[in-house]
Design a protein around this nucleic acid. Structure first.
Lengths: 328, 328
DNA sequence: GAAATTTTTGAAATCGATTGCAAAATTTTT
DNA sequence: AAAAATTTTGCAATCGATTTCAAAAATTTC
């Protein structure tokens, strides 16, 4: 297929070693030979096989980024930052959707190990499972890994997590201080991350002596609208709802408006994540900002240090903050 | 670092060839040896080095997906479909942000060539440049490439494009038929794709004897809001605006509402792309659906055939359709 | 039970780079 | 101009797989 350094060597009348030295700017090559080889290199559109190079050097210059769903703005934002940052250093990123079962997610760890990635990033709390943990122990026991939004107690795994429990509790307290006394929570899928949010909701309700009103919605705006309407019919006294995800909040807001409710006068709404579209929504969403950007950039920083020094790990907790806009 | 087949071979008391045969399910291995080797393979958590394998087999089982900005829902949706589809076939996807200059985009072609990807996908009309074209000729002259939303007249490049000219013209005609006579167009960045849209707008205006009122906005919702307001102050007679991007339409809608305009009574709005959030917006956006899904799945289909038969190419044009919701 | 046939296995070459070491070429010193 | 020192270059081994070809082992045939 492509040219090899042997082709270049023959053309230049030198050995492959010399070509290799020119390519890698090694010293001890006569200026005239270097220039001759360089010219041929340029004219022939040669490109080094990274696979062959990696085999010798025991490196791949590849990163593995595992996300549960790349279409999620949330996840892609993290993948983007890391990809951009490491591309500048000559690393390519294998960005993979890790499927939706623990088996499949564990399998992806094996795939990354087969590709000999130099480091990996796990984005999303769904990776928190015994199967994935075991796969890491089996297949990547020493590869630096950064887990965004989850933790493993393993010597090669760093973590960057948002304190979602506290973030959600904070939202409840805020609503309480605004005089709301009937605060419901609408959850999405059952993930470790969402369990932490609910823990925060329950904790704050207990603290404040409020009734905990929990409901679960499918993960589309439309389903959330239905869930919201249904919840309201069962609890007409509701004066605030917190949603586990901004998208659900948008769906709920829309339906409440259609039902003639006034937001936030009749009912206050708080979403979660401060997703890009939350500020585009009408009304603009108040939301629990899980500090996606900080999370991702912390991952990127840790990864960088860990690639330098594979035994480096770090555990970062980032505290969410409340962003108040038009729904509270 | 990891185990090699030689380690496995020693452990099993056989040669590396035998291990290789077992791994690849080649025939002619005694059942008892096969089972012994398989057991060791399982117990040792061995994983084949794809790089070494690729070197021998002259394959990489990697795909290159170049996008101009992975955070763009638009682009990521395409990358997602392709990644998902080919992962099932054992391919890993290098998803790369190709930067924002023609030089950098061309450079990424070289990077993919260095990684010896078996096929590549270009997502976004911005790749339509002489530099990229030359990079393809130089570095990937025979690698199957599918260009989503652009074309190169090269024997290895397939294309899947939306007929944005016609799609936009269609939107103008629709508004005209609804009785609108003062239809403006707000464009975003100057890209080949956006130029096609404007061509369609201008064409339809000419056909219908309308004045062409063109304005350009920055690419945030806020900037679009400002542009919209400014445009309206200069052309108070406006009764419809088409936006090159849904996001801009959301920004515009919001500002118009704030200015006390009624949508669509006073002024009708049409976005472009049918982005996921366009249906979440309030009011729900009418939009020119550029058939992202069809586009991506056509790319995926072509890619599949092209990997089988590297000289296969195809050129697909998909016609956008108008999705009418609450802003018209 | 020896010969012929078939099945199973391993040695060695290969893929495309990199690198240590020794040989060749060049320059410096005498 | 020869010897010594230095610079430049190439040979060969290596990375971790796969595959061809021939040898060894097992099976069948006579």
């Amino acid at each position: 297929m492509g040219l090899t350094i042997y082709d270049i060597a023959k053309e230049a009348g030198v050995s492959a070693s010399t070509v290799s030295r020119v390519i890698n700017a090694r010293p001890g090559i006569k200026k005239s030979t270097r220039e001759r080889v360089e010219k041929i290199l340029r004219d022939s559109n040669f490109s080094v096989s990274e696979a062959a190079r990696g085999l010798v050097n025991q490196t791949s210059r590849m990163l593995g980024i595992l996300v549960s769903d790349i279409r999620n703005q949330h996840h892609i934002e993290g993948a983007y930052m890391i990809e951009q940052h490491f591309m500048k250093k000559g690393y390519c990123s294998l960005i993979l959707n890790a499927g939706d079962t623990d088996e499949s997610r564990a399998e992806y760890i094996r795939i990354l190990s087969s590709r000999r990635v130099e480091a990996a990033v796990l984005i999303g709390s769904v990776f928190q499972s015994e199967k994935v943990r075991k796969a890491i122990i089996d297949y990547m026991p020493t590869t630096p890994i950064v887990f965004q939004n989850g933790e493993f107690d393993l010597s090669n795994v760093s973590s960057v997590v948002a304190d979602e429990t506290e973030g959600t509790a904070e939202a409840v307290r805020y609503l309480y201080n605004q005089g709301r006394r009937n605060i419901a929570y609408i959850n999405s899928n059952d993930t470790p991350s969402n369990r932490k949010k609910i823990a925060g909701y329950d904790k704050a309700c207990a603290e404040l002596g409020l009734e905990s009103i929990l409901s679960v919605s499918g993960d589309s705006a439309e389903e959330s609208a239905d869930t919201t309407e249904h919840l309201l019919s069962e609890h007409p006294e509701l004066d605030a709802i917190i949603y586990a995800v901004d998208l659900l909040c948008v769906g709920g807001a829309r339906r409440l408006l259609d039902l003639g409710k006034s937001i936030p006068k009749d009912i206050a709404l708080i979403g979660t994540d401060n997703s890009p579209f939350s500020i585009l929504a009408n009304p603009r969403l108040s939301t629990i900002d899980t500090k996606l950007f900080e999370l991702s950039s912390a991952c990127s920083d840790i990864l960088e240090k860990a690639i330098e020094n594979p035994s480096y790990t770090e555990h970062v907790v980032i505290r969410p903050s409340l962003v108040l806009r038009e729904t509270t």
